[in-house]
Design a protein around this nucleic acid. Structure first.
Lengths: 110, 110
DNA sequence: ACCTTATATCGTAATATTGCGATATAGCAA
DNA sequence: TTGCTATATCGCAATATTACGATATAAGGT
């Protein structure tokens, strides 16, 4: 059959998987990196920087926003996007969880 | 046209995107969480714990291994899997990079 | 050698993602 | 209102992922 049976997993597992999925594309990594440098930008800026068409970038922005990684506010005729705390905090929390739990495991097993 | 044009992005962007993609599935999150508790397990253990068939789990293990998130060593007729430092370190480094860069941005922009 | 156990791979169907042209929507200016 | 600019959404084609039955591979045990 088909893809991803999210119903069989816990809410928490689905939540973190969706967060990671939102970042799991080079274009969206590039968008985030651009925001780290520029602090804020509009969709049109990214169209000039990335090798993708405007509708494609708009779609990537939508996914990043839905995952809480960026936020956007309307400013006249354009939308100003910048990084959002919540998604990045969740990512850091998960990464730290993995890392510290791994440190606490006694030596190697295999 | 089709999916993901990785050739247009930097190696680093593709690398981190692939790492995140390897974790961006609830079944693979569940496998990692199981390994955090059990420290090590074989494929057969996961078949009893997860609502997925053996070939599916074997495939997920392969992807986690390819991304450097787990490692496996042959032990007789079975394979012992456990978490690997390299992938988890890379994830933590990326998450910290995002988090500290965001902290350094002056206040809010939008 | 034969059988059992454990995992991996193949092949394929179902589904999801990606990308973009065409078009819709929304704000602003004149 | 008309026109311009910026973004979002629709619809579709190309591609990628997911899941699993069937089968292959490999290591023991007897």
């Amino acid at each position: 059959m088909g893809a991803s049976k999210s119903a069989h997993f816990t809410d928490e597992q689905n939540r973190i998987a969706n967060l990671l999925k939102a970042l799991a594309h080079p274009a969206r990594i590039a968008i985030v990196e651009h925001l780290l440098e520029a602090r804020a930008c509009i969709c049109g800026d990214l169209v000039e920087v990335l090798p993708l068409a405007q509708p494609t970038i708009s779609q990537h922005l939508k996914e990043l926003k839905a995952a809480g990684i960026i936020q956007g506010t309307v400013e006249g005729t354009s939308v100003c996007y910048c990084l959002s705390e919540s998604g990045i905090k969740a990512l850091l929390t998960f990464a730290k969880h993995l890392s510290t739990s791994l440190q606490n495991q006694q030596t190697h097993c295999c």
